[in-house]
Design a protein around this nucleic acid. Structure first.
Length: 129
RNA sequence: ACAGUUUGUCGGUCUGUCGCUCGUUCUUCGGAACGGGAGGAAAGUCCGGGCAGCACAGAGCGCCAUACUUCCUAACGGGAAGCUAUCGUAAGGUAGAGUAAUGUAACAGAAAAUAACCGCCAUUUUAUAUGGAUUUUCCAUUGGUAAGGGUGAAAAGGUAGGGUAAGAGCCUACCGGGUUGCGUAGUAAUAUGCAAUGCCGUACAUCUUAUGGGCUGUAAGGUCAUGUAUACCGACGUAUGUAGGGUUGCUCGUCCGUUGUCGGGGGGUAGACUGCUAAAGCUUAUUGGUGACAAUAAGCGUAGAUAAAUGACAGACGCUUUCGGAGAAAGUACAGAACCCGGCUUAUAGACGAACUGUUUUA
């Protein structure tokens, strides 16, 4: 396994600063790839190519166990497609903030999340600029 | 064996691939190696305590919580053992301050507490409580009466006798309960014996009495602090064509200052660090105690994230159920630490253990 193909997911790749989150939701564009809603925008701060934020609203899933389950599914599916997102970034030469919001109120199998994530990559290739 | 009561324990395992987080060590600063990484309820946030900040002369009132007794505990509204009442054939379950005062008691019922709808009775002196009539009686009115009456959760302690116009603890005997006094057992609640007292409906609420309670929670609190604006202080420089002020009645002069740069500096936003995990700790054994629990000894060293790690995927096994033939299908709970402990309450597929009770069968 070469150095570039490592599918890690470290703390630096998570969007954690409050002002960044506010900026993303004020300035970002969004689209839906069921069961996920994606919000993204360009980032002009020194950062990894893509910085990610995953959110599962309490209104949709009341139990913490289920919310954790969804967060882990989405995170893993993103992690395994990280290189594709990075490719989009290098294509346009920009860094991106991306938020994944879970909009359904029940659990889905991991394979469905994976399909949704593939679709997101395609849409991003067209929309990001 | 079946039915049940109480109580305790567990609540998946393994392999592979790819990851996350904390600690230690190493490092070519990219990272690498090794080790640790959710629960019995982590939940609800309902009590109690630690810890922290704020408030605080004293007294009274109010508000909230608790309420048989003794004990356990850091503390508690928790627990243990007992007492009384009550439910259950039983193992066991449930409840618990006081009753002086005030209020309420659905439906049903005459009536729900100074009870007269029906019923009973009409008193002393023989001849009548009053009125009427067809006059040993009947009707109405008035008065007395709690013996009897479809109800109800609850009906004015129960039975018998005396008594009476009829009745009534009105009186007596026995029985049930209460209160008071004395004795006995017990630390006590209480039990029990004797005596006195006719004192005698139930439930709930208000109320009364006693005890306890200041408020807020780790997003508390503390430390550092980029940028921006800047109180204040110092130095240097510029202008004298200068706002403003002091000195003064005015002018000049002079001092402060204004403006600029640099340095110091208080407060403090974003953010970072701390709080932050060793604890009234756990396991085992012994001793004391009916028990909760306590003491002693040995061993263990047990998650610390911050938008939030403890995982995702694939496969195998286990367990349960159903089909049926050596396999297949379905299911595999409730639920995710957020400062830390002790409890309570609620959710929980299923599995196992212990003690005890009842019934049946056998010996």
């Amino acid at each position: 396994m070469t150095e570039e193909k490592r599918f890690t997911f470290t703390k630096a790749e998570r969007l954690s600063l409050k002002r960044h989150v506010d900026f993303l939701f004020n300035e970002g564009k969004s689209f839906v790839s069921y069961p996920l809603r994606v919000v993204f925008c360009t980032a002009d701060v020194p950062a990894p190519p893509v910085t990610v934020f995953i959110s599962v609203p309490k209104k949709k899933l009341k139990r913490a166990v289920k919310r954790n389950r969804v967060k882990r599914q989405v995170r893993e599916m993103y992690r395994l497609r990280k290189d594709k997102f990075a490719a989009v970034s290098s294509l346009f030469g920009k860094n991106y903030f991306i938020a994944f919001l879970y909009i359904d109120d029940k659990l889905h199998p991991t394979s469905e999340i994976a399909k949704s994530m593939d679709k997101i990559v395609h849409i991003l290739e067209k929309k990001a600029c």
